[in-house]
């Protein structure tokens, strides 16, 4: 059930990014995907990415999350240990027909992006009252 709702799309992730400078690494950020009652919730670690550098798009049923992280070097500084870089994050998820791409909401806070993809009305689990005579 869950796997049908939202599947990470490796093929779309691997698609070349025309606008990316060739020396910037494209990295798949860590993602949590949860299938809840009324929506699929996608949480992505995007440290160093601000709203302006974030792109969320849906095309041909594939939700793509991309963001460019920034590294802020202090004034007059020389980096003496480097374990993370100004990378481009990119992740793609194939949305099932049961999800409504139109109602997607997204919130970015403290380097974490939370996306909610609502389920279509007819596919939501519903309680049906049974009338007993």
């Amino acid at each position: 059930m869950t796997q049908e709702a939202c599947v990470l799309d490796r093929k779309a992730e691997a698609a070349p990014e025309a606008e990316t400078e060739p020396w910037v690494a494209v990295v798949a950020p860590a993602v949590d995907v949860e299938d809840r009652q009324d929506a699929v919730h996608v949480t992505v670690d995007l440290p160093g990415v601000d709203e302006q550098a974030l792109e969320i798009s849906v095309e041909n049923g594939v939700l793509t999350l991309a963001g460019k992280a920034r590294i802020e070097a202090p004034a007059g500084a020389e980096r003496v240990l480097g374990e993370f870089d100004a990378v481009v994050y990119k992740r793609a998820l194939r949305l099932s027909d049961r999800l409504s791409a139109g109602g997607i909401t997204a919130q970015l806070r403290h380097g974490v992006l939370r996306v909610a993809i609502p389920k279509r009305e007819e596919t939501k689990a519903r309680k049906i009252a049974i009338n007993v005579n």
Partner: peptide, 29 residues
């Protein structure tokens, strides 16, 4: 979770004329 990542959080360390600046990648903390 975090398979293949030996050290967490990843750090960048900068040397400045006045000292050191340490950046730690800790999203959502």
């Amino acid at each position: 979770a975090g398979v293949g990542r030996a050290l967490y959080p990843p750090l960048n360390v900068w040397q400045t004329p006045d000292g050191l600046v340490v950046d730690a990648e800790l999203p959502g903390v």
